[in-house]
Design a binder for these strands. Structure first.
Lengths: 243, 243
DNA sequence: AATAAATATGTACTTATTACACATTAATTT
DNA sequence: AAATTAATGTGTAATAAGTACATATTTATT
């Protein structure tokens, strides 16, 4: 923003556009909270109780407080809705069409978060949020279907380049579980041998010399993500990548 | 955003957080306007006239008007600053740290734009913006260095996957010019033969059977980008890519 | 006419991707 | 206890993509 714009603002009360008008835009964060269960990618949704969208679900979100960073606002929403605070979270895009919200001008910054549904700290009873398989979602309140699709698109990009997918799995997992998760996110079938070769080349995994338990077939080996690849955000330091 | 948040807002005047507080956040767009000239990537900057940042340059930007879409706001800034309106423009990220702006709480949505410096419609005399080679920029006002770096990082990603780079070139260009542009953006040297092979495989270019003029060496052939690859935004339809 | 500087082009080598089959192990069934 | 089932675990050949590298050609300049 230029000084010119600020001057405009400071003297705005004497002009047509009033000072207040510039601040008459609400700004929120919306969170696409993703989990993985029963070979499906799922998202937390709440039933919209706005008349305009009765019967439709919407994404959890809230206004950004004037004394709160963007990331702090989305972490707060996450903590309120899931009880979790040490989670992967990434900004995706800001949505600001004039008529996107029936109650007035509201611009929203969309984040997506990846959590382990089996995390024992996860509390789903804090509110009226429930898991919904993303593939079954046809329509959402507001522009939330667009927001969801944009986040899923970004997730698919990230997954091909960075080890972010592990945030959706328990600490220990088998190669089969990992492959099924890739397949669920990318919507493709992968060849087991080629998949294992590719993962092996990445050198992300630690063989912890344990086996699966309670599976109705021959148990597979368990692995963990090496510590140096654990990420709570891809963006951390990312702008320095080419510096 | 949930209905609960709206309820909170509607009844806010009876509570500690006043209704006005929620709207007491300014929201702007900032534009990283990029061009290419003399084998260098350049960005349009204006000298900051804020006391806090005297002597430093900053990115062009402005407040979003209450009746204006996000994209409309950034197109408006672009049109005001360059006279151009048919340009490549893409949202990159929203920056909202509490103290990023000395005059108050201002959240900004960053866009980057790619323009052809030799476009005859370009008017650089509309304002006090000037081109600065991005590699020589060490410090900017506000958090604008971070915004610039984030946009450049995104540009480098896009360039590897999509034919966006052509927005920085005149309609007709030689393979040498194209290669030098890739080298400037990616900060690497490329092998001429391998580069040409890769470009040829992409099948982006139309051989228009013309040669360079006024070059102090053997002229090369000129090419154009095929029409179907002309993009004013990578995001157009992108969310449907995996649908 | 000679020189300089850039264009234009192809091949061998290495690395990555894809397609594909069989022996092994543990749980389950008979 | 033996047979069956269902998944794990592994390797190789074929193809495609990426990398390294040199020479003849064309135009402008000297």
């Amino acid at each position: 923003m230029t000084e010119k714009a600020l001057q405009q603002l400071k003297t705005a009360e004497t002009e047509k556009i009033s000072h207040l008008d510039y601040f008459n835009i609400g700004i929120t964060v919306d969170c696409v909270i993703l989990g993985y269960e029963e070979k499906e990618l799922k998202v937390q949704l709440i039933k919209s109780d706005m008349q305009e969208y009765s019967g439709l679900y919407s994404l959890p979100g809230d206004f950004i407080r004037p004394d709160e960073d963007l990331e702090a606002a989305s972490y707060r929403v996450l903590k309120e809705k899931t009880g979790l605070d040490d989670v992967y979270l990434e900004q995706v895009r800001t949505f600001g069409n004039i008529f996107r919200h029936p109650s007035g001008r509201v611009i929203t910054v969309a984040y997506y978060s990846l959590i382990d549904i089996k995390n024992h700290k996860l509390q789903t009873d804090l509110n009226e949020l429930h898991w919904h398989p993303v593939n079954e979602i046809k329509k959402l309140a507001f522009d939330h279907k667009l927001i969801l699709d944009t986040c899923l698109h970004r997730l698919r990009q990230q997954v091909m380049e960075h080890p972010v997918i592990f945030n959706l799995l328990p600490e220990k997992f088998s190669l089969r579980e990992l492959q099924e998760l890739y397949e669920a996110i990318l919507g493709v079938e992968l060849d087991r041998r080629n998949f294992r070769k590719k993962i092996s080349i990445k050198d992300w995994l630690l063989d912890i010399d344990e086996m699966e338990h309670n599976v109705p077939h021959r148990p597979g080996k368990l692995y963990m993500l090496k510590k140096q690849f654990r990420n709570k955000s891809v963006k951390t330091g990312a702008v320095l990548q080419f510096a």
